[in-house]
Amino acid sequence: MTNKELIRSFYQEFFNGHNVAAADKYVAENYIQHNPGVEQGREALKAAFGEKFITEPTFKLDIKMIIEDGDMAAVYLKNVDPEGSTKCRVVDIYRIEDGKLAEHWDVLQPVK
């Protein structure tokens, strides 16, 4: 699986399918998180988004572009509501190691 395929599959299953267990396939156990709102590690990611999917059952991310350079990839995406309107623009940056997402940074731009 290419890095782009890894990312697309992860977003489809985890974020859009609301399947937190999918992180076990795609995310390293010792996942390094640079977003201060989410604790370190794969289990913390699963816990944070498990809660988010309960409080926001229509949560969805539409990937618009993936840029890859070696073991790094940047994903430009939009958080959209059920009508398809953009709620937030996001850039996620990942370091990929041994076929899994190993490290994450993000930039968020809410839409008013």
Rank of each mutant, 00 (worst) to 15 (best):
N30I: 10
V90Y: 12
L101F: 07
Y31H: 07
R42L: 13
L61T: 05
W105E: 04
V111L: 02
A74P: 05
K60T: 11
N30V: 05
A28D: 15
M1D: 04
K64L: 14
A102N: 11
E5P: 14
A23W: 01
K78I: 01
K64F: 08
G37F: 15
K60W: 12
G50C: 06
F14Q: 00
Q109W: 04
Q109A: 02
D98F: 14
Q33T: 02
Q109E: 11
Y31E: 04
G70R: 05
T86D: 13
G37K: 08
D81Y: 09
G99C: 10
L108S: 13
S9F: 03
H18T: 00
V91D: 01
K25F: 08
I96F: 09
L61K: 07
E5F: 09
E5N: 13
T55K: 14
E13R: 01
E29F: 15
M1W: 03
H18V: 00
T2A: 03
Y31P: 02
S85F: 14
K60C: 14
M65I: 10
E83S: 15
L77G: 07
A102G: 06
I93H: 04
K100M: 11
R8P: 05
V90D: 01
A22E: 02
N79K: 12
N35L: 11
E56A: 11
Y11T: 03
R89K: 15
Y94W: 08
V75P: 01
N3D: 10
T2K: 07
V75E: 01
G70C: 14
M65E: 15
N79L: 08
S85N: 15
N16M: 05
A21L: 08
D81K: 05
I32R: 13
Y94K: 00
K100V: 13
E13Q: 08
A74K: 02
N3Y: 05
Q12A: 12
N30M: 08
I93L: 15
G17Q: 03
V75F: 06
F15V: 12
N16C: 07
F14W: 00
V20D: 01
R42M: 06
I54S: 08
V20E: 01
N19S: 06
K25Y: 12
A21C: 12
L101D: 00
Y11F: 15
A22H: 00
S9L: 02
E13D: 14
M1N: 10
D98R: 10
K100H: 11
V20R: 03
I66C: 14
V75D: 01
R8G: 03
G99M: 05
V38G: 03
N16F: 14
H34Q: 09
E56V: 09
E5Y: 12
A21M: 14
I63R: 01
V91F: 11
H18P: 04
R8M: 15
T58Y: 13
G50Y: 08
Y76A: 04
A22V: 06
Q40H: 08
V111Y: 04
K100A: 08
G41W: 01
A73H: 03
C88T: 13
K100P: 02
R8W: 08
Q33N: 07
A23S: 05
K4W: 02
E83H: 09
F59D: 02
K46S: 06
Y26N: 01
R89D: 06
G50T: 04
T55Y: 09
N19M: 07
N3L: 05
Y31K: 03
R8K: 13
F15L: 12
F14P: 00
H34T: 03
E29I: 06
D69P: 10
V90E: 09
E39V: 06
K78G: 07
E5M: 11
G50Q: 00
N79M: 10
